[in-house]
Simulated assay, not measured.
Amino acid sequence: MFSYRHAFHAGNHADVLKHITLLATLRHLMQKEAGITLIDTHAGAGLYRLDGDYSQKGGEAEDGLFKLLAAAEKLDALPDPVQDYLEQIASFNPNGQAKIYPGSPFLMHKLMRHASRDRLRLFELHPTDSKSLTANIAQLEAGRTVTVSREDGFEALKKILPPPPSATGSKRAMVLIDPSYEIKSDYSKVASVIQEYLKRFSTGTYLVWYPIIPRPEAHDLPKRLRTLSNQSQKPWLNATLAIGRGEGDEGGLVASGMFVINPPFTLKDQIRQALDMVGPALARGSGKNWAVESS
């Protein structure tokens, strides 16, 4: 149950898609002054060493972040979401070398606003990663604005959604759901969570990352999310990125998607512009493609 470790995959093509989408969504949501509760149901360790043993073993950042950095150096200008993403990565690497990769918890924390009293709620069940996450977050000295809990993020949502009113009385929340899908039941859990909270807290913004692999559950998940959104009359966006298989490459994840419910109205054009640059930059073989669909 606890064999998955995101440290092996940090900075890969799936992280590039996930974090570009996450940052673009957050930038828009934070244009409103009202405070917002940010939730990561599967937060991982929070920070990762790209020059460490875990990352080096799989070398997945080579086909993700590092490839994107190399492509960016050859361009005079980048799409705003890509520029923002790379600037955030650079802010964790002041020496100019990408050795530290910030996971979703640290990217979300970086954008939080003290004046608006934003809150960040992090959940991680893996014993080792939960311990690492707690230690990494402690370095921020963020006090009560960030909480870390070692528990099942799916179950934890029941206690915090709908969120309590902010200091200004508003109830706003953005939820990132990105389990490993190592357990087949994760697919049905994601769909069940979305179905429940579109009823309990229909105004929340929900971001779901999912792998694109040859399994019925994986194939059906974005379809189920689309159906649930349509039934609730909520707008949605689905962005996918497949880098293709290189010569002699027979294993490993080569495609993933980000499904966003109640996305900012600006997100569709932003992610399209981003993928027009990221897709070709990361493409490496047959089966490469990228697309953005929306309601």
Rank of each mutant, 00 (worst) to 15 (best):
W236C: 00
S229Y: 01
Q231G: 10
P222E: 01
P222R: 09
A242N: 06
T227A: 04
S232K: 11
P235C: 05
K234W: 14
K223V: 01
N238H: 14
I243L: 12
L221C: 09
Q231Y: 06
R215C: 07
L225K: 02
K234G: 15
P216V: 12
N238K: 11
L221V: 05
L221G: 05
A239I: 11
R215I: 06
L241E: 15
E217P: 10
A218T: 08
L228W: 04
I243K: 15
R226W: 03
N238D: 15
A242C: 03
S232Q: 07
E217H: 12
A242P: 07
N230F: 15
L237S: 06
R224C: 00
L225E: 09
L228V: 08
Q233G: 04
L241I: 09
E217V: 02
R226G: 07
K223W: 00
P235L: 12
P216C: 13
I243G: 13
R215P: 07
A242E: 03
P211S: 11
P214Q: 11
L228F: 13
R215M: 05
D220G: 02
A218Y: 10
I212W: 14
R215A: 10
I212S: 13
P214G: 10
T227H: 03
L228Q: 15
Q233D: 09
L241G: 02
T227Y: 00
N238C: 09
S232E: 08
P211L: 11
R215D: 05
L237K: 03
I212E: 14
A239T: 11
S232N: 14
H219I: 13
R226Q: 13
A239S: 13
A239Y: 05
A242G: 04
L228Y: 12
T227K: 08
A218H: 11
Q233N: 11
S229L: 07
A218K: 10
S232C: 05
T240K: 15
T240D: 10
P222C: 01
W236M: 00
K234Y: 12
R226D: 08
T240P: 08
